[in-house]
């Protein structure tokens, strides 16, 4: 079912739930991984993902069809991630850098963690980035999102996103080479 059909069915009371289920099935993995790269822990990712789909249920009626559905979903997911990290920071009453260190420690605590494997080093390197750069890097590197779409998701100019990605790549490269 394509997005346009999903939206039509969601607006019909008789097919609303069917459309909602189809929408979740279609986007849950992409959104999950986007969230997980940001918050690392599965349980946290699950909480954030559920919040995202609750917002979708409550807001899909007002979604303007002139925007892409997946861009809108990514925007909600990104905002939920940032809200979650902000709340985590407040709860822990620590600085952002401490939260990032906590995320790195969570990665190291993963049962499959192997410091010698490059993919794990990459995850650690990603956590060293500031939040916004981390978002830009993961959206570009993993999701291969065009800057035009990313610009709508992150509400940032394409030029700034390109620069941010450039810096992120260089920082990650440095981290990998020096660790």
């Amino acid at each position: 079912m394509d997005d346009a059909e999903l939206l039509i069915q969601f607006r019909e009371p008789a097919t609303r739930e069917k459309a909602y289920t189809a929408l979740i099935r279609k986007y849950q993995e992409r959104l999950y991984w986007h969230i997980r790269r940001m918050v690392v822990d599965h349980d946290d990712s699950n909480d954030v993902l559920q919040n995202v789909f609750i917002r979708v249920w409550n807001g899909l009626d007002n979604f303007r069809a002139d925007a892409k559905l997946y861009t809108w979903l990514y925007r909600i997911a990104t905002n939920e991630c940032l809200t979650f990290l902000e709340q985590k920071k407040k709860k822990a009453a620590v600085s952002l850098s401490d939260v990032e260190e906590g995320l790195s420690n969570q990665i190291k605590a993963d049962k499959d963690f192997d410091a010698n494997k490059i993919e794990w080093k990459l995850q650690l390197a990603i956590q060293q980035l500031p939040e916004k750069q981390r978002l830009v890097f993961t959206l570009r590197y993993y999701d291969e999102m065009p800057y035009e779409e990313m610009s709508k998701v992150l509400d940032t100019s394409e030029g700034a996103l390109k620069a941010s990605y450039h810096h992120a790549v260089k920082k990650i490269e440095d981290f990998i080479l020096n660790h």
């Binding site: 991984w33 997980r36 993963d110 049962k111 499959d112 963690f113 192997d114 494997k117 490059i118 993919e119 794990w120 990459l122 995850q123 590197y141 993993y142 790549v169 990650i172 490269e173 990998i176 080479l177």
Partner: peptide, 12 residues
């Protein structure tokens, strides 16, 4: 260097 890395995530 980064482009040559395997993008497979280490998380299971």
């Amino acid at each position: 260097l980064l482009a040559g890395l395997n993008k497979k995530m280490p998380f299971a």
